[in-house]
Design a protein around this nucleic acid. Structure first.
Lengths: 214, 214
DNA sequence: GTCTATAAAGAGATAGAC
DNA sequence: GTCTATCTCTTTATAGAC
């Protein structure tokens, strides 16, 4: 295909990921273009061959993160499965994707304030679209009796997104929990709750045959 | 008992809250001392009569937020009550306090990176102390059978703090949910989970008196 | 306790050579 | 595609008058 399949990725290809990492570490406003250029091995003036402005970078990486997670989660819930399993698939896909693009997601979630006008509106629209997807999967699960109906889908989605989003900010790969383990933990916690089985129904429960934990 | 009980709070008293609000809106690095001074109705040079540096402000408001929530939650769980009710009290106290000091908490959680050396270590220690408190309440509840034991206290605490912390960033008072309503939602979601009651045990419940705490 | 004035450093961005 | 050089503006913080 191309003559440089084996070469180091060019400045242009590394730019977004490098910016995401730096913005996350220093905050968008606290990240200087000189330091960003330094991480890429060039001078700050050369950045402007690859980008329009610093705000451009923030906008592009936010859009990329949201488009990617929407794609991945849409694909995960599209596979034919019963609704409770679709929700588990959503949780898995969300956790895996958000942690694979951890810098981009953290920055997208925290630095929306630094975008102005149209760009902010676009990112907000993509966020809304994604949250609607989550809410819809939850509402569908409620409709066929796979989720409790005494809490509004909106509020269940709120709780789920709280649970999922915050992990972006503390998760460190290879420390205690694997990404899959974290997804399993969240799915179990969100679906089953923290009460012991005996308390989760108002009746005394069955013996103790189950051994499933991660 | 002072002579100006009725007067406007002085610059010194308004400083921390004003800084928290501004740091939250613009990010710590994006917040200028000129704008901060403007909000207080003075010039930026006059700020330095009330503070050592901008970083001082971040440090002080972070410590304040953590000391306050530790106090409030400690008090809430100290009241004699059965462990599951103690956990509900913790959730209520956390949500109420964190949302009462919403700006301080949001800034404390997001801008730790901007503190250097000793100050960062102090804030980190206070965070650890608070998380230990939460973990301890959860472990106690597990010990007397009020919470499931197949998930480590550390992991249950992780899930609970995820659920609670993220709300700092989107909650808007007087929109849809009251603070008490949110606390109730989180308590129910965390304890009972999202599955319908029939599904919250794995099998159709069998009448079986195996003792309430396995 | 607040002011004016300013120092010293750093920011984002551009021009034009190579 | 990257460089040097530089413009312009803003930043945190200080000095010293009032």
């Amino acid at each position: 295909m191309d003559h440089d399949e084996l070469s180091t990725p060019g400045t242009g290809e590394r730019l977004l990921a490098t910016a995401a990492s730096l913005f996350r570490r220093r905050g968008y406003a606290g990240a200087g273009t000189r330091e960003l250029a330094g991480l890429l091995g060039i001078r700050s003036a050369s950045l402007y061959h690859h980008m329009g402005s610093k705000e451009d970078l923030l906008h592009r990486l936010s859009v990329e993160a949201l488009v990617h997670i929407h794609e991945q989660v849409t694909r995960a819930v599209a596979e034919p499965a019963a609704p409770p399993e679709r929700l588990r698939a959503l949780i898995r896909a969300h956790v895996v994707t958000a942690l694979a693009d951890q810098d981009e997601h953290a920055v997208m979630l925290m630095e929306l304030r630094a975008l102005s006008g149209e760009r902010r509106a676009e990112v907000l629209a993509l966020r809304d679209r994604y949250e609607s997807l989550v809410r819809q999967v939850i509402a569908d699960a409620q409709d066929c009796g796979a989720l409790r109906r005494d809490i509004a889908p909106k509020h269940l989605a709120l709780g789920l997104l709280n649970l999922l989003n915050w992990s972006i900010f503390w998760y460190q790969p290879g420390r205690d929990l694997s990404v899959e383990g974290l997804a399993e933990l969240f799915a179990t916690t969100f679906l089953e709750g923290a009460l012991p089985r005996a308390e989760r129904t108002r009746q005394p429960a069955q013996p103790e045959p189950k051994g499933r934990t991660a």
